[in-house]
Design a protein around this nucleic acid. Structure first.
Length: 295
DNA sequence: AAACAGGAACCAC
DNA sequence: GTGGTTCCTGTT
């Protein structure tokens, strides 16, 4: 990997990345604050706005520095993880080969646990576009303003901001019945009853137990938080899409989501979450199980 | 315009 | 711990 910095323009150019494909990374449903602007993806990450351009060879990061690369982006884009070896292991399962090929270049982003927790509470019984809209509105209403290139963006709200949120204002963001869950979870975090900072270093099962205490957090949402922000590679979030594709590809006698999780745990072990990403993306792109996709 | 899509809470057993 | 019902809102 070769990095070139242009300090005057706040631009970084990175060459030599493998298994890296921004459209798949940003559109596989793991993150909600990245948007295509016609040439690249603009994202809000922490207190930064960053733009990502990709020409197939060179990754260009706009509005950032070499220091940020070391302290933020290297980990955020999961560049320390060897995807070659993960793909090699998963490819031993012939059933996964096509899904892996289809979602080539997916990476599991290491996102902020707090933002990920609230975002996936919003995701319950919800589609990706509406999740994005709601997260955006919540950020506009409760988050701090940042500007870049004459445009205004908003940071994801703080724990305090959402713990104190007015219920009607929350509802006006389109979160529906999830509003009280969001506020309740924010209050649990603020009280210190759950400390997100400790979850990375504890066991998968213990961390999951903690997350399940939050209102609006069940097994699927907890697994998303564990996988997308706490580096728990064995987390295997099961939603309807995963349910459909697992039934189609493995046709096991799995009667509910709990069975599917256990099956994945046994079959994929500590890289189950990576398998989940390929499967999820594959299922959605192919509209598996949807009547409208049947000819 | 009624039907649909999408996880967790809650209650009953 | 399992099974059935309800929660809200944008899209079709």
């Amino acid at each position: 990997m070769k990095i070139e910095e242009n300090r005057d323009k706040d631009v970084l150019k990175i060459d030599g990345l493998t298994n890296f494909n921004p459209p798949h990374i940003f559109e596989c449903g793991q993150a909600f604050r990245w948007n295509w602007d016609g040439q690249g993806y603009v994202g809000i990450v922490g207190d930064k706005v960053v733009r990502v351009l990709w020409d197939g060879t060179t990754l260009t990061l706009e509005n950032t520095t070499y220091e940020d690369f070391n302290t933020i982006w290297q980990d955020y884009f999961d560049l320390n993880t060897d995807y070659g070896s993960i793909i090699e292991k998963l490819s031993k399962d012939p059933v996964l080969v096509e899904a892996i090929k289809h979602g080539w270049g997916i990476r599991i982003l290491n996102q902020d646990p707090w933002e990920t927790l609230i975002s996936f509470i919003i995701s319950a019984r919800n589609g990706i576009n509406r999740i994005k809209t709601t997260v955006d509105k919540i950020s506009q209403k409760f988050g701090e303003k940042i500007t870049w290139a004459d445009k205004v963006y908003y940071k994801f709200p703080s724990v305090d901001a959402l713990a104190n949120a007015d219920e009607d204002e929350l509802r006006s963001c389109g979160c529906g019945y999830r509003g009280p869950y969001i506020k309740g979870t924010a209050q649990l975090i603020r009280s210190g009853e759950i400390n997100l900072d400790t979850l990375m270093s504890i066991d998968y099962k213990d961390a999951k137990k903690q997350l399940l205490k939050c209102p609006g957090v069940g097994p699927k949402v907890a697994d998303c938080v564990l996988l997308f922000s706490l580096k728990k590679g064995q987390a295997f979030p099961v939603d309807v899409w995963i349910g459909r594709i697992m039934e189609e590809l493995y046709s096991q006698e799995m009667k509910d989501f709990k069975d599917i999780r256990e099956f994945a745990e046994n079959r994929f072990g500590d890289i189950a979450g990576y398998a989940q990403q390929y499967l999820f993306y594959y299922a959605r792109e192919k509209q598996i199980g949807k009547v409208s996709s049947r000819v």
